[in-house]
Write a protein that binds this DNA or RNA. Structure first.
Lengths: 194, 194
DNA sequence: CGATTTTTTGAATCATATCAACGTACGTGG
DNA sequence: CCACGTACGTTGATATGATTCAAAAAATCG
């Protein structure tokens, strides 16, 4: 279970860690299993852990006054899940995070992560790299959201994350794109890509 | 000119730097003036500098095939401007950055920034804090873009950055929100907030 | 001031949402 | 292994929010 995790850290930190270092990392993280449809986080909670997905899939979303869900982020194997703001600042979250499949996680608290970053520079590099990538991805998503039509949004997502279309219900992808499920269905009917 | 910059770094790094440390910082940065409407970055360029705005205002935007501009980010005093992806990875940018007012910048190259972060830990803390804030802000903007109506987007922006409405032409704010200038005009007519 | 840019307004059009009904696939229990 | 129920996706009809185009009004600037 920890092997791909170790490989992942090596890859993103740019180093190969020693067994001792990995023992440190392992000690800081706690495994957790969560069944499909269970919540990892609900509105009003404080997000106490940063979770690494070993296996499974999750989504992070808001619910508006009309009760509509808006998916902000999906997570699959080797992705991290958390409401960053709530996690870093211990403020109540406005998001829900739940499991789309039975999911296995490795969780770390803010205190443990902070300590780990100090004792093991590789983890510091990792979180830096993650932030950088996250920032860039977010920028691209904003650009797409404000400048593309519904059809272009679909094609763009299909290009970037085709895996989403294999794993997630179409209605959820519509929610992620900010369009209605019916519109996505009609777009796909007329599109070459499927 | 450097005084507010020094204060800014102290504030975001969480320390008070010594005069020696500030000399290091100062040496890494180059002042630059740029007049209204001049470009700091154009599509296809590699973004060579991270720029801190001492005075003035800028915008970062893309231009689509139809020639429409989509503003991704504004910058004012004490904000940083750069295409992060292009700057970090030396890849050609898809963005334009230009000045909305006569603007004074302090610029740092990637090499100088990297070195500075190593010799002066405060600068490392600063960039970390920036990434964190940037990530959180981006997440919020995505949430707004996919879940709010045009009117709600306007009210949301008015709440978060009222200063934008005082400094930038309304048509640019419309572009930033991803709505047409006419729509923004009509929304404002019927809105209490102005 | 006059000239240029920006904002507003109106009318027509378009993209997308909404609502409702139907089709299809899947999984569970009999 | 079939039948049924539940989820999900599709389709059509209609409604609506937002865009577009054109022109007038207002604000800004030299």
């Amino acid at each position: 279970m920890y092997l791909p995790f170790r490989k992942y850290i090596d890859e993103y930190s740019g180093d190969t860690m020693t067994d001792d270092e990995f023992a440190l990392v392992k000690a800081a993280f706690t495994p957790k299993k969560i069944r499909k449809k269970q919540y990892l986080l609900q509105e009003g909670d404080v997000c106490k852990h940063l979770s690494f997905i070993i296996k499974g899939a999750m989504r992070q979303y808001t619910v508006d006054e009309k009760g509509n869900e808006h998916i902000v982020r999906f997570g699959i194997e080797n992705w991290w899940m958390a409401d960053r703001e709530s996690f870093e600042f211990s403020t109540p979250t406005i998001y829900y995070i739940d499991a789309l499949e039975d999911t296995e996680l490795l969780q770390v608290s803010l205190a443990n992560l902070t300590e780990l970053k100090q004792t093991f520079p590789g983890m510091n590099k990792l979180t830096l790299a993650l932030d950088k990538r996250g920032h860039i991805a977010a920028q691209k998503r904003i650009t797409a959201a404000i400048s593309l039509t519904a059809e272009e949004k679909y094609q763009n997502l299909f290009k970037i994350h085709p895996i989403f279309f294999q794993r997630f219900p179409q209605a959820m992808i519509a929610s992620y794109l900010g369009i209605s499920p019916e519109t996505l269905s009609r777009i796909r009917k007329n599109s070459i890509l499927k």
